[in-house]
Computed example of a mutant assay.
Amino acid sequence: MSVRILALVGSLRAGSHNRQLAEAAVKLAPEGVEVELFEGLADVPFYNEDIDVEGSVPAAAVRLREAADAADAFLLFSPEYNGTIPAVLKNAIDWLSRPYGAGAFGGKPVAVIGTAFGQYGGVWAQDEARKAVGIAGGKVIEDIKLSIPGSLTRFAETHPADDAEVAAQLTEVVARLHGNVGAAA
């Protein structure tokens, strides 16, 4: 039986280095692990309890919740916007935290990684994402971290999957996250 890891990317930009990092995770996933890159976060409206009503939840939010419910673990990719988590990723966490007490994260393992232009690789945003997803019910694996600095220069001409150091680190992240599936209970 294959383990399903849902990848959520906090950048909507087509050429996003975090999206490329997520694509690399899909490509480098070991046998028995499927990393699914969720498409459609841009279509999910901002969380609002008035529209989160059974029978009238927006279709994009339903798709997100269904993908999350089918996942065994989560891998979040966060750039850093003004020193914190991007709104699109926070919004996804908010939708997946509901209904209260029965959200899709439900004790499943979660790792947060990413890349950013700055010298620290987006650690502030990743720490904020860990905090939010932990409060939302995910089992954050605190010792799985990967913050790659200097994304604009490092990945200017090289896809993360073709960067040997990054590929090795990313492969280890996915393997370690996989190793926490089942241990989350």
Rank of each mutant, 00 (worst) to 15 (best):
L8V: 12
V9H: 07
S11E: 10
L12F: 02
L12H: 06
G15M: 12
S16H: 02
R19M: 02
Q20P: 09
Q20I: 04
L21D: 01
A22L: 03
E23A: 07
A24R: 04
A25L: 07
K27C: 11
A29L: 06
E31R: 13
G32M: 05
E34R: 14
E36Q: 15
E36N: 15
G40M: 13
A42H: 15
D43V: 00
V44S: 03
P45D: 10
F46H: 13
F46G: 12
F46C: 09
D50W: 05
I51L: 14
E54N: 10
S56P: 11
V57T: 10
P58D: 01
P58H: 00
A59L: 08
A59G: 08
A59M: 09
A59I: 08
A60Q: 03
A61R: 10
A61S: 12
V62W: 04
V62H: 11
L64G: 09
R65Q: 13
E66R: 08
E66W: 06
D69N: 13
A70P: 09
A71Q: 01
D72Q: 04
D72T: 00
L75G: 05
L76A: 07
P79E: 00
Y81W: 10
N82I: 05
N82Y: 13
G83H: 09
G83E: 04
P86N: 05
P86V: 02
V88I: 14
V88F: 04
N91D: 06
A92Q: 13
I93Y: 09
I93T: 08
D94L: 03
L96K: 03
L96E: 07
L96C: 12
S97T: 01
S97N: 07
R98S: 06
Y100Q: 14
Y100L: 14
G101P: 05
A102V: 00
G103N: 01
A104I: 01
F105A: 13
P109G: 11
V110S: 11
V110E: 13
I113C: 03
G114D: 03
T115K: 08
T115M: 05
G121Q: 07
G122M: 02
A125H: 01
A125L: 01
Q126M: 05
R130L: 04
R130D: 05
A132P: 09
V133M: 10
G137H: 04
G138Y: 00
K139Q: 07
I141W: 07
I141H: 09
E142P: 15
D143E: 14
I144A: 14
L146N: 11
I148Q: 04
P149E: 06
P149T: 00
T153D: 15
R154W: 01
R154L: 06
F155Y: 08
A156V: 02
A156N: 13
A156Y: 08
P160N: 05
D163M: 05
D163I: 04
E165H: 08
A167I: 13
A167R: 15
L170H: 13
E172H: 07
E172Y: 02
E172G: 07
E172Q: 08
V173S: 12
V174K: 01
R176P: 15
R176Y: 15
N180I: 00
G182C: 03
A183N: 14
A183G: 09
A183S: 15
A184H: 14
